[in-house]
Nucleic acid binder design. Structure first.
Lengths: 216, 216, 216, 216
DNA sequence: AATGAATGAGGGTTCATTCAT
DNA sequence: AATGAATGAACCCTCATTCAT
């Protein structure tokens, strides 16, 4: 599964070639460590061509981050919608979906979570707003579970944060070549999230098949 | 609590001034984003002076990372030693100590966890070895709990990883000005770690006082 | 009074739009400081469109300069013709006309007098020839006055040069919003020119009305 | 006579080498037309070395302009002081000195009078203040002559402006290889200035010798 | 121990211009 | 007549580093 940017406004092929190259470079060398020349070379174009699509290297980073975060939010909302009203199903679904998404584009996930510092103040602010929106989806989810007495954690806030962090950072170690499929990992993390909020002491959902997760 | 570098070979005062400046710069602007001039200026010396203490900017980064990781390991080992044989107490203690350590130097923690990419291949390899050593302390801890039937998680490996990640990344959001003391946060995370491995459904350790934690 | 380019070969409207934009840009930012993009944008066309009318940015500059200088010469010749044989009337008329012309298009005048350096060697040579032709009109005028004993300056050459310079550079400070009309200024400069060559010690021509000058 | 910068704070030799090179480049190719590499090459240093002395190319231009204008003002004030109270002697002296100064460094004079556009807004403002101060020295001089009835021009303001312009722009055509010495030219322009304000109809000061002018 | 001057390489970005459409 | 995409060269400037003093 690769990043879908059907929802973004930039379908021009030249543009996508550049973003993909940027993701590879930023992932390997970081934003500051990647020169525009590096990116252009990786994309197979001249440095100047890059400036047809993006006003600056910073713009390129911001576009990449914004789109990844927008998808993170969209997917989490979808997962919550699909899960129905049960807090257990909701948290499980959200965590599972979040792991899947981050595992699906390890490079982008890594960039989004380590290059915040490289954003200009204005862009950073905008990004943090998106990050907060995502966190709040999980916060609400956990709070509801606590209110209904289904989750027993005394610290919904910390637990919610820990859930997002641990799911997000699956991208730090997940490799396609590893022993577990993304679906299996996501399923386990779904249950670990429930553990964390004091909702269950063991697996209660069906193990994943290739069709059952995230609508696929 | 500030970084102790008693164990490092660099007790010369000039050296510490530079490391401190580097931490501030790398934290704010990242490694590639910080010029040697920036660091020197922050330290109140000339760029050339910096080369009396470090052979290169890369050396400075590596020194900083190595020492932070060495302390991470030392402290975790200390915590395990103090906890005695009980798996619950051991995991609680290790997690608690790890949170405290990362909250005690948010800037260094951040650098260590986001500038791995900026290390030269040789240095990176060395760093990953340290990171693995630390992870293994938690892995062993969780495995023992599972073996003894005290922890009920079916996925000790994933759980252990999640514990380290969630404790480490407390540095991402913790601010001294926040409502919770580091000790309170560490105490909660200790319990959340137990939750995650299926060891408890609520607080079972004494709440922290300012003297009870980490030997202080 | 605006630049008439009836005499130039470029009557196509698209062309004039571009020249006008170029004048604005070169005036504000200089030739080297104005990018083809700047000019195109100011003209409301694409950079590529510009190349339908001009082979290069240099061509655009040269066209602009050449036409302005051609008009400078034409107008001076006209003024001399209208003035008749009297050296006093001739110098007065030429100076007056030259001031009027330069005040009528301050921007072009400025460009013509400060971007000579930006011309290619071949173009520069051609421009200097035009400039010399213009200067010679005044030189002849002053010499005749001296020969006839009407002008008393011992240095006709320097005086003639000074007259042209001082009239030309009215464009440096003249603004439409100023207290004096171009006609009033031109009238005064006509007299100052006479002063300079030692022909008079005060106003001797009729003050300007809006119809009396330059045939308008 | 070359620019003396004894009065400036920059006596470091490296600095002067760079300024001299900049003057040559800006004179030949203009500010925008001269690359930092051009200047550095002309000075025999690396482009980077240039940034030890100047923060930017703009700074270099501004320094050059400011110092030239400061000298213009100083020298004019000196000339007025030396001339004593007689308006005729004062205007003659000021014009003569101004011609000499501009002829002494044709390149700098040219730059100062054609690169105002290339100054940043803040720098431009500062430069214009200097230019106004200089102009006011001549304005006052002419006004005094008119008040005392020694100068008969009805337009002191225009005349004063014309005097400065014609003296300044001697640098446009003066070449060391020409037939007239700077002193001879300055002497003639002194008289032409008097002509312009209606003070004399012919030479009244002693012709120049190599020791009599400007204190030399 | 520390500096000021210097450097070669490379940074992000803009340039005038071309060309298929 | 006009465009959008593309380019190679060059732009100003900053980089990490060196070295004589």
């Amino acid at each position: 599964m690769t990043r879908d940017n059907a929802s973004s406004g930039s379908r021009r092929p030249g543009r996508q070639v550049i973003v993909d190259a940027a993701v590879r470079c930023f992932y390997k060398q970081g934003y500051e460590g990647s020169s525009v020349r590096d990116i252009a070379e990786d994309a197979g174009v001249t440095p100047a061509a890059l400036y047809h699509y993006y006003a600056s290297k910073q713009d390129l980073l911001m576009d990449l981050i914004t789109r990844f975060m927008a998808s993170s939010i969209d997917r989490t909302e979808d997962a919550l919608r699909r899960a129905g009203p049960d807090p257990v199903a909701r948290l499980f679904g959200a965590a599972q979906s979040h792991v899947l998404w981050n595992a699906s584009d390890v490079a982008s996930s890594f960039i989004v979570n380590s290059e915040i510092r490289s954003l200009s103040p204005a862009n950073r602010e905008q990004h943090i707003a998106q990050r907060d929106r995502l966190q709040r989806l999980f916060d609400t989810c956990v709070e509801e579970g606590c209110d209904k007495g289904v989750f027993t954690t005394p610290w919904p806030h910390e637990a919610s944060r820990a859930v997002v962090v641990m799911c997000t950072f699956v991208a730090r170690w997940y490799r396609e070549s590893g022993p577990l499929s993304p679906e299996e990992i996501a399923w386990r993390y779904g249950h670990m999230a429930l553990s964390l909020v004091g909702a269950s002491r063991g697996p209660q959902f069906e193990p994943p098949t290739y069709e059952s997760v995230n609508g696929r």
